[in-house]
Amino acid sequence: MFWLSVQQSGFHAWLEKIQDQFIRCFIEEDRYMLLVKGIGVTIKVSLVALALGLIIGFLIALCNLSGKKPVKAIGRVYTDVIRGTPSVTQLMIIYFVVFASIHWSKWLIAAIAFGINSGAYVSEIIRAGILSIDRGQTEAGRSLGLSASQTMTRIIMPQAVKNIFPALCNEFIVLIKETAIVGYVGLMDIQKAGDFIKSATFLPFMPLIATAIIYYILIKLLNFGLRKIEKALRKSDLRR
């Protein structure tokens, strides 16, 4: 009986402590708003970086597949340099060096940096997707009199997309998590918001776990959406 009451009072004390921590971390001074705004920043940076990465990736993939030596070299150097250096370094160089005297909003510059980074990886994904389509398809298109670009857009890409899409989803997820370093250039994303709350309250547990949970849910939601799209893409595919 005695033992049970000690346990109960211990449990109560623990519950109260948790409640107290929760209030200090998220309710006091409306700190939860930091995280909410952080979600907005993360999504904004990720989406613009994704779009930019796709465009750059496609162009670089075309460079890499080109028959012309100097064009090929551009693609090779690009992927080589980007993949050979840490993204934090790239972000800081672009923010503090390249855009040092250009006063665009912080998130946009960060998005550009991530887009440039992602482009290198996307280009390899697209290149592999294009190469996965049999050469005979290109030859059939060209033999009918289609130009190289008509063959690419009407025959090769529609088939390659199905092969490219799953790898691209993966890259998008990596990209979102990668943006957790934007704190380095003073942006308040989800990660930075969690870190800020930690420093302000001296309570590491709650804000960091909350940060992890928010990222996890974001990516879960994204994954759900992407699976839906992939299913639609495979509709005409016998393998499904």
Partner: peptide, 8 residues
């Protein structure tokens, strides 16, 4: 072509 190369 030998391998037909129809657009699937």
């Amino acid at each position: 072509f030998q391998q037909f190369n129809l657009f699937p």
